[in-house]
Every structure is written in structure tokens, then in C-alpha cells.
């Protein structure tokens, strides 16, 4: 009999704790497969965030840190600077990266740390029970915006990929999604590209992955996928936002 499907060496055999229909498992698997495909598992150190994926250190089959809320990029900086030969990635949600950890992600990207960030954006706080995220859509219900996100109070959702992409420092920045098999395949290619840039020692890389949260959105999986496509995609356009190859040398030199 021919084996057509197997688990990836990049993940442990442990069953995840994620809710039914959650796409964290798919994103874990994409990252795990990329780590396996690139043959870097034995020199990779991952960093789990605080949020739904807090237990990611149990699932990735490589050395893992657990970071405090939002600080994974700083931990990544310390690890990578101390051991430039290892491959360092952080796996963070929208509350972790775009709210409490905004300072760390911006400055880690801006310093051009040779690390890879997987940013999962499901427009809601999952683990604490469906509160407002910086990426929650206008009008979207959350337990702390019971009348829907009022942009006059909360501002508009934060577009992290675009924010990181507009920094001058060379980087690879892209956004993918998980709402269709086609997008999953495309997103895995982006994640692979992101890791490849790190393996080559080229630049900082970040892939934002749009994800669904049926539990806290209060929708079925099918409805969630439709909602993501209808509400999130127009606001969070997919694709590569920035490539290090596009970088034009800035000739500024203020030495005096």
C-alpha cells in the first residue's frame, strides 16, 4: 500500500487543544512542514506567545521557548543574536503581536533581525474569550464591543503586514489566508519563502495569516470562511507586501 499522507516531523504527535474548526492546527502544520522540508528542524528554536497558541511549544517538534505576552520578537532577538547559527521563529496571535507587543515587533523588524514571524490574525482575542483585538473588523461583535467595534472609540483595524512593510529596513513581508485549500497552499509557499530568507541570512521575515475563529465569531466553520472572505479579505489584501530584492540602498550617511 502506498502512503499518501503522514504527519510531519516538524510537529509532535500531541493532539492540539484548539477548538473545532480553528485554523491554528493548519497553520501549525504548514510551519511544521516547512521546517521539515527545509531540513532545519534540528537547528530551529521556536517561540510561543500568550494567547490561544500559548501551548504551541508542545506541538512544534523543535526546541521551544514560551515568551511573555507580546515579547516573542524580543526573545527571538536575544536568541538569534546570541546564536546566529540557529533558525528562530515566533508564532504570535493578533493580541500578542499587534496590541501588547506592537513595540517589540516593529523594532525587531526595523533592526532587521534575521528571524521569522508567523502572525496569526483571526480578528479576535480567542483564549480570554472573544474580546476586542486590534484587528477586529469595524462593526464586529466582541465581548468588549457588545455593540460592535465602533471605530470612533476603537479606531480602525491595524494592518500589520502593511505597517511592517513600510519600514525602510529590507524584509520579506506577506499576507496569506486559510479560508480555502488554494489559499492554504499559497500561504505555505509564503511561509517557506520566509524561512528561506532566514536560512540564507538575508533579512527579517513576517507572514500574516488570516485565520478563522468559529467559536468566538459565533459562526459555523463554513460561515466563518465566508465571513473571512467577505469582511476581512477586502480590508486585509493578500499577497507579498515587501521583498528584500526590492530594496534600494539608502545612501544616507550622517556620520560627522
Amino acid at each position: 500500500m502506498r502512503k499518501v499522507f503522514a504527519s510531519t516531523a516538524g510537529l509532535t504527535d500531541r493532539p492540539t487543544h484548539y477548538c473545532p474548526g480553528c485554523t491554528h492546527g493548519i497553520i501549525h502544520r504548514m510551519v511544521g512542514e516547512v521546517i521539515e522540508d527545509l531540513g532545519i528542524r534540528e537547528r530551529t528554536v521556536g517561540i510561543a506567545p500568550v494567547g490561544c497558541s500559548v501551548l504551541a511549544y508542545e506541538y512544534f517538534n523543535c526546541d521551544m521557548f514560551e515568551a511573555s505576552h507580546g515579547r516573542a520578537p524580543a526573545v527571538a532577538t536575544g536568541a538569534k543574536r546570541a546564536r546566529p547559527d540557529i533558525i528562530v521563529f515566533s508564532y504570535q496571535g493578533d493580541g500578542d503581536l499587534a496590541s501588547i507587543g506592537m513595540g517589540e515587533i516593529i523594532h525587531t523588524a526595523n533592526r532587521g533581525e534575521k528571524v521569522t514571524v508567523i502572525f496569526v490574525n483571526n480578528a479576535i482575542y480567542g483564549m480570554t474569550g472573544g474580546q476586542l483585538a486590534p484587528t477586529t473588523m469595524p462593526g464586529q461583535y466582541s465581548t468588549t464591543t457588545p455593540r460592535g467595534r465602533d471605530v470612533r472609540d476603537c479606531g480602525y483595524p491595524v494592518k500589520m503586514a502593511e505597517i511592517i512593510a513600510q519600514l525602510t529596513t529590507p524584509a520579506f513581508v506577506a499576507r496569506g489566508s486559510t479560508h480555502t485549500p488554494r489559499e492554504i497552499i499559497a500561504t505555505k509557499a509564503l511561509i517557506k519563502k520566509a524561512f528561506e530568507y532566514q536560512v540564507a541570512g538575508t533579512c527579517f521575515s513576517l507572514v500574516e495569516v488570516l485565520s478563522i475563529c468559529p467559536t468566538n465569531w459565533g459562526l459555523s466553520v463554513r460561515e466563518s470562511e465566508k465571513w473571512l472572505e467577505r469582511e476581512m479579505l477586502p480590508y486585509y489584501p493578500l499577497g507579498v507586501k515587501k521583498r528584500p530584492e526590492d530594496f534600494a540602498e539608502v545612501s544616507a550617511d550622517a556620520k560627522h
Binding site: V75, A76, G78, A82, G103, R111
Partner: peptide, 25 residues
């Protein structure tokens, strides 16, 4: 290696990362 962090919050998490990969920091 010398890194000027963006804040003390970040600096202290950087030493966490560096110590975690086994260097004196």
C-alpha cells in the same frame, strides 16, 4: 554582541532569549 533595545521591557526579554540559548548575558 551589543543591542540597544527599544525599551527595558524588550531588553529584559532579549536577555531571556539569549540566556535561553545558553550564553552569558
Amino acid at each position: 554582541k551589543f543591542v540597544q533595545a527599544e525599551s527595558e521591557v524588550a531588553a529584559s526579554n532579549m536577555i531571556y532569549g539569549a540566556a535561553g540559548v545558553g550564553v552569558r548575558v
